[in-house]
């Protein structure tokens, strides 16, 4: 595989992670448990959508076919989206959202910490800006994991279930394919296998502090890297793409 193609795939994955998770988080707007939380969640959503935009723009540039951020965000078919499965899962209750966010933030934080040193200058620059925001996301989702885990009996039970339910989607974050091999070899991105043990350590430590059990490892879902999604993805796209599909070729 050519480096250009691998880089394009790689950027789409990063961009889709941020776009789809940001999209899901924005559903909390107006419905959060307290006004302060609405504002905080939207801040995270806005950060992620910002990352997605930079990554899509660069992906379009790398591809060289003149596709814009919106072409990439709105006009691909489901199989062409490469976001991790965990990003497209329903928001559920607030504990589900926090657990999803914490597991993803922890991954994203470790990944972007490495991307800051990418041999690709644009990737490094995007990461340098994003890492500051991701560090804050992680801090917030960690603080909330502690509060829900070590809060009331009810909250403890609820978020423990959230982590248990989400666990089988965490493996998908670390699956590597041909594009990854090219990216690692070129020094553009890290070997995900080196991140996995640190991710486990960190998750374990926070869960322990939150008086939560580390879920048991078992069967892990996968497929996002080849565009095989959950049933939720199609519904996300039917909303996300509605305007672009209903009124093709318009300026908005």
């Amino acid at each position: 595989m050519e480096q250009k193609e691998a880089l394009f795939n790689y950027l789409l994955r990063l961009g889709d992670n941020a776009a789809i998770l940001g999209h899901k988080l924005s559903e909390w707007c107006g419905h959060g448990p307290e006004l302060e939380e609405d504002i905080a969640v939207i801040n995270t959503a806005l950060d992620l959508l910002g990352h997605a935009r930079s990554l899509y723009m660069y992906a379009g540039e790398v591809e060289g076919k003149g596709r814009t951020e919106d072409d990439l965000a709105f006009l691909r078919i489901e199989r062409e989206y490469r976001n991790a499965l965990i990003c497209e899962l329903p928001n559920g209750h607030y504990g589900d959202t926090i657990a999803r966010q914490f597991l993803f933030d922890q991954f994203n934080y470790l990944l972007f910490s490495e991307l800051v040193n990418s041999k690709d200058e644009t990737v490094a620059a995007i990461a340098a800006k994003a890492i500051k925001e991701i560090r804050y996301h992680l801090r917030r989702s960690m603080e909330w994991t502690l509060r829900l885990g070590d809060g009331t009996e009810e909250s403890h039970k609820k978020i423990q279930e959230s982590f248990n339910d989400l666990w089988s989607y965490t493996g998908d974050l670390f699956v590597e394919d041909e594009s990854d091999a090219v990216i690692v070899a070129a020094g553009i991105g890290p070997d995900l296998n080196t991140i996995l043990p640190i991710w486990r350590e960190n998750v374990k430590a926070v869960l322990a502090e939150a008086t939560l059990e580390m879920p048991e490892d078992g069967w892990m879902h996968s497929g996002s890297k080849s565009g095989r999604h959950t049933e939720h993805m199609g519904h996300i796209l039917s909303e996300l793409q509605y305007m672009q599909r209903a009124y093709p070729g318009c300026e908005w």
Partner: peptide, 12 residues
């Protein structure tokens, strides 16, 4: 959380 909320509410 007050500090964190203050950051999100008052320094956007």
């Amino acid at each position: 959380m007050a500090i964190s909320n203050a950051r999100d509410v008052y320094t956007r």
